[in-house]
């Protein structure tokens, strides 16, 4: 027997509190699924329609806009503390279509499909004619900037052998010959000089370095400036019967910088 399509129950306001809760659930779900790049924050709810669901509950079919933040997906910073990329940084927007089941006061994402796109170069130029535009991550200038930045960082932090995990973002300046890159590194279980076979070095669990590097051409050479924030895993809280004092439960991240003229 052919089933009759369900008629929508209602078209609520996009800023309805229930709709906002569903949108928050979509945002959390999307971020939990990302394995590279940056977290996204909700920017606007575009459409919503509520359908009945058998045997119980309601399904919110929605379209939402999100914006890329400065927090990497492996960064433990809570989403509410992550700032969105501004237009001058060449903002990236995520458009998502999703269905969310509301049942017994709980929201659960049933499915979601997102597409992310950078703002157009024309829009960036309107607000900031001299701002750098996003560049492909496999651009030779980007690859070189990452290699030079990583080498500069390692030259000043030789206590650990670091591995490059990901190149996350790159921007090339339209006026001066400089390339800005963001990448993620991880300390490994190898000593400072690494191993004969670097592939045998394993990244330490849950420890990452979020790095920003700028390479600027200058008088036949180049300047390299790099800084990395190394995330420190949470140390278990001391037990009451422990006699030896231990560090505080949550160590702050460690910022390490090199440059600006290190190479």
């Amino acid at each position: 027997a052919r089933s009759h399509p369900l008629l929508p129950l209602r078209d609520p306001d996009c800023d309805d509190p229930d709709v906002e809760l569903a949108a928050m659930e979509i945002t959390q779900h999307v971020n939990s699924q990302l394995q590279s790049g940056y977290k996204y924050r909700l920017n606007q709810i575009d459409k919503v329609r509520v359908y009945p669901r058998r045997p119980a509950g309601e399904v919110y079919v929605m379209e939402v806009d999100m914006l890329e933040t400065t927090c990497h997906v492996m960064d433990k910073t809570p989403l509410e503390n992550c700032t969105v990329r501004q237009l001058a940084e060449h903002a990236v927007e995520g458009d998502c279509e999703a269905s969310v089941l509301k049942m017994d006061g709980q929201y659960k994402v049933l499915n979601v499909k997102c597409e992310s796109n950078p703002d157009s170069a024309e829009d960036v130029r309107k607000v900031c004619p001299q701002c750098s535009l996003l560049a492909p991550l496999n651009d030779t200038r980007v690859v070189h900037a990452v290699e030079a930045s990583l080498a500069a960082f390692i030259s000043q932090n030789q206590s650990t052998f670091y591995k490059l995990l990901e190149v996350s973002r790159a921007q090339i300046s339209p006026i001066q010959p400089s390339v800005y890159v963001e990448f993620v590194i991880a300390p490994t279980d190898c000593g400072p000089k690494g191993a004969d076979d670097p592939s045998s070095c394993h990244p330490l669990t849950d420890q990452y370095g979020f790095c920003k590097g700028t390479v600027t051409k200058k008088d036949g050479g180049e300047d390299v400036a790099v800084s990395c924030t190394i995330s420190v895993p949470l140390v278990p809280a001391p037990q009451p019967d422990e006699a030896v004092p231990t560090p505080a439960a949550a160590e702050p991240d460690v910022a390490i910088a090199a440059g600006p003229d290190v190479a």
């Binding site: 306001d13 996009c14 800023d15 920017n43 606007q44 709810i45 919503v48 806009d65 903002a91 703002d119």
Partner: peptide
Amino acid sequence: GLAAPAVPGAAAPGVPLCPGRIRHFKV
């Protein structure tokens, strides 16, 4: 006997307000 002037941007009763508010900026 004058009719109240229309309020720009005011939605008619029962018309859903979408899209919703912009939290950061429009791209």
